[in-house]
């Protein structure tokens, strides 16, 4: 069986060996959920500004995108600097999924008040909603197969192939952000550029490796 791209695998060298194991993985989950708790606390205390629902929705979506990009940054970071955070990648990816789920829940429950007609119309007619919803649907099977048990059952190669769909999810999420705003403000474009760079880094090292031939 091919070696699974597993967070359970020990770090393959790199400068993090000395300190990374000292930070337990659960701390990433706890720290990663602080922004959600913070935003919800502000919301319940009426401290999210003039449009609290929209602000909560926006913050949760923004953190989903940030964690998704952070998960995608793990590999290029290792290639560029040797810093290996692979053992935290699953946590980053799952945090992205949790935030995407919370973002969707706020949209469905608080923003649209579970108005099925309005939601269906939004998903079908509004490209930014369609794109955002599609991004979530792509993340769903990835989150469902994030356990070690699922990696074993699928086999590493099939699992890795499935999880390449994270590139699609990230591209859709970045596009979702660009489409939701009026005009072309900088922030969504910066995220889109970061996403594009992270996706391009996948294509470039593969090409470079092919030119170089096998590593010695």
């Amino acid at each position: 069986m091919a070696a699974p791209v597993s967070a359970a695998r020990p770090p393959a060298g790199g400068s993090t060996r000395s300190w990374a194991p000292m930070v337990p993985r659960w701390t990433v989950y706890v720290a990663g959920l602080i922004p959600a708790a913070w935003a919800l606390g502000l919301g319940l205390n009426d401290a999210l500004g003039a449009e609290p629902i929209k602000e909560l929705e926006h913050l949760l979506g923004l953190w989903a995108l940030r964690f998704l990009l952070a998960a995608l940054a793990v590999t290029p970071l290792r290639q560029l600097t040797g810093v290996n955070l692979l053992r935290y990648r699953r946590a980053l990816g799952l945090l992205a999924f949790y935030y995407a789920a919370l973002h969707l829940a706020v949209y469905l429950l608080l923003d649209q008040g579970l108005d099925a007609g309005a939601i269906a119309a939004d998903v079908l007619k509004r490209p930014y909603i369609t794109v955002g919803f599609a991004s979530f649907l792509v993340l769903l099977p990835l989150a469902a197969t994030s356990t070690n048990g699922m990696i074993r059952r699928l086999g590493g190669r099939a699992w890795a192939r499935l999880h390449r769909f994270v590139y699609l999810a990230a591209a859709l999420a970045a596009l979702h952000f660009v489409l939701v705003v009026k005009s072309w403000p900088a922030e969504p474009l910066i995220y889109a550029a970061a996403c594009a760079a992270l996706l391009a880094s996948r294509a470039y090292p593969a090409a470079a490796a092919a030119r170089r031939g096998p590593r010695t």
Partner: peptide, 20 residues
């Protein structure tokens, strides 16, 4: 073209659980 104009949210209408 990108969002509905059928409803609106009145600013100050009551926090996280305000209706459109």
């Amino acid at each position: 073209p990108r969002w509905s104009q059928a409803t609106e949210r009145r600013i100050g209408d009551g926090g996280l659980f305000a209706k459109r």
